[in-house]
Write a protein that binds this DNA or RNA. Structure first.
Lengths: 129, 129
DNA sequence: GCGGTTAGGTCTCTAAATGAGACCTGTATT
DNA sequence: AATACAGGTCTCATTTAGAGACCTAACCGC
């Protein structure tokens, strides 16, 4: 497995990607940062409206919600639809691209859950010394 | 798949996890943030020393490297070993826990790479309007 | 028809996180 | 004696994130 990643890193650097402009980095940043992760998990459950997301994620600010949603929309990971009701309503849902990402995200959550006992133990060991 | 995640979110909230103290969130934050991701990819290739990592990640600062390494060490995802050479050398390597995480991370990178054309297209559409 | 509420944001201001880079300790090198 | 390297820490400037006021338009109760 490491060789795969080794080759990729090689390829990338050979293709002259300055670290800062690596597109994969950018996507991962958008997708794996704190709020985007939680937003995607929510939208994986069902499409949601702006304020619904706000209520589902009690500790996000409107500002960060807007910003994260825009990034994900721009990357084609979710879709924003405005309905001309009164007041107008806006729903967000995963695109196929976003759906394709979800299993990986859930795998991560699963890994974290399963690993929690070990992680907690490691922390205690670390903090004791 | 969504039901799985639905149940988890349910469970968590039922267990009275305030969003802020959710341990899984914390681990994901440590593991999926910008620098930790890159560090783990590097250490997935081979164990490395501090300055070696610094050179491999040309745009990280010492400060953030130290900090990220400490977090990952505390969570038991990597191991720090000091050798009493002169000058003393310090190597970082993945623990079993960390090795277990690597495939998921590589899957994400892979998803991002495969999805790049679609993502780039989505961005252009978004920016045009 | 006045006050309050909802949706979906934006704007401003403050607080916290990050980045750049000087500095430190100890040994070896020239 | 001066310089270099490893592996950091410390300080300070810049970025980013968070809290919350504000906005528009429409509806509800009374």
């Amino acid at each position: 497995m490491p060789e795969v990643s080794a080759r990729k890193l090689q390829d990338w650097t050979e293709q002259g990607f300055e670290p800062g402009n690596c597109p994969v980095r950018q996507v991962l940043d958008h997708v794996s940062a704190k709020w985007p992760v939680l937003i995607l998990l929510e939208l994986g459950l069902k499409p949601m409206r702006f304020n619904e997301l706000l209520r589902a994620l009690p500790d996000i600010s409107k500002r960060m919600l807007t910003q994260s949603l825009r990034n994900l929309e721009r990357d084609g990971i979710l879709r924003r639809e405005v309905f001309d009701t009164k007041p107008p309503s806006v729903t967000y849902s995963l695109t196929d691209l976003g759906e394709g990402f979800l299993p990986h995200l859930l795998a991560l959550v699963d890994w974290a859950e399963k690993g929690m006992p070990e992680i907690v133990a490691a922390r205690q060991r670390f903090d004791r010394t």
